[in-house]
């Protein structure tokens, strides 16, 4: 149906650079086809914006990449190796992680205990945890990332949504995640909070340690922090451009055009 850009196989050189390749992924829920041969790639250190209307399959795709759903067809290549993602822990072991704002953190624990949850440092030769060094490392890391919290001793439940999101992202990156998936990271956030998160994403991007896929409905923010934008429509990627080659107007037009008879997007 659509003669889209990604149909042509990528040159070998580019494959080496790809930290993640998703090829011809199909996912059906009963008679509903959520993903219909979805293909996308993510380069090392790249930030990819994934847009599309509700029901286009964005969240399904993210859930397949994090091992939550298993695809009915297609292949996933992580750092050049074919992988079968069977579970969330398995995907995490490969360095793939999604950050959900409200699922990730434990409200009644301090910031630094949340940062080290499941990976607590222990005092040598003692069953006690090394609170002081965890505090120090968390503080230094959050300072580096310019994540603004009063103190790493504060319970996470007392922080704002933006701070919590920032800590959740920082924690994922701190634990050596290679591919970070952010599903609506700015949902229900005020302008100031959103700016904090965007600044954090930009800082992570500068470091080139982590590659990201960001799902968002706010195209201005996508244009702001992403390197490239993909549009998902009815389970297929129908648009793939670097942000400097497109514009806010074009993205808006693309998504809206679906309601005007669904003509194929340009380019």
């Amino acid at each position: 149906m659509s003669v889209s850009q990604e149909a042509a196989p990528a040159p070998p050189l580019e494959t080496d650079e790809d930290v993640l390749r998703v090829e011809n992924i199909v996912k059906r829920f009963g008679s509903v086809v959520a993903l219909d041969g979805t293909t996308l790639h993510l380069r090392r250190g790249e930030v990819l914006g994934l847009i599309g209307d509700n029901g286009a399959g964005k969240s399904t795709l993210i859930k397949i990449i994090t091992g939550f759903h298993r695809p009915d067809g297609g292949r996933i290549v992580v750092e050049g190796r074919d992988v079968q993602l069977r579970s969330v822990p398995q995907a995490r072991a490969l360095g793939i992680e999604t950050v959900y704002q409200d699922l990730a953190l434990v409200d009644s624990l301090s910031v630094f205990h949340n940062m080290f949850l499941g990976k607590e440092l222990r005092l040598a030769g003692s069953p006690l945890v090394a609170n002081r060094s965890m505090k120090e490392r968390a503080r230094r890391y959050l300072e580096d990332m310019k994540v603004n919290v009063t103190s790493v001793d504060v319970e996470v439940g007392l922080l704002s949504g933006g701070q919590r999101q920032a800590i959740a992202i920082a924690r994922a990156v701190y634990s050596n995640v290679k591919i970070l998936l952010l599903d609506e990271p700015l949902a229900a956030m005020g302008a100031r909070e959103a700016k904090q998160i965007l600044d954090l994403i930009r800082r992570l991007k500068e470091r080139r340690e982590v590659s990201m896929i960001i799902i968002s409905h706010t195209y201005a923010q996508i244009m702001d922090v992403c390197d490239r934008v993909d549009l998902l429509r009815r389970g297929r990627i129908v648009f793939d451009k670097r942000v400097e080659d497109t514009s806010l107007e074009e993205l808006t037009e693309l998504v809206v055009s679906e309601y005007r008879g669904g003509e194929e997007p340009p380019g």
Partner: peptide, 28 residues
């Protein structure tokens, strides 16, 4: 008190009750 505040067991206990899914996701 020491177990609850200063050991992995204690922190994991607080995390389990505070956010079961989140704690499990974090490897608790």
């Amino acid at each position: 008190h020491l177990v609850l505040r200063r050991t992995r067991w204690g922190i994991h206990t607080l995390a389990t009750g505070g956010n079961l899914t989140g704690a499990r996701e974090a490897g608790v």
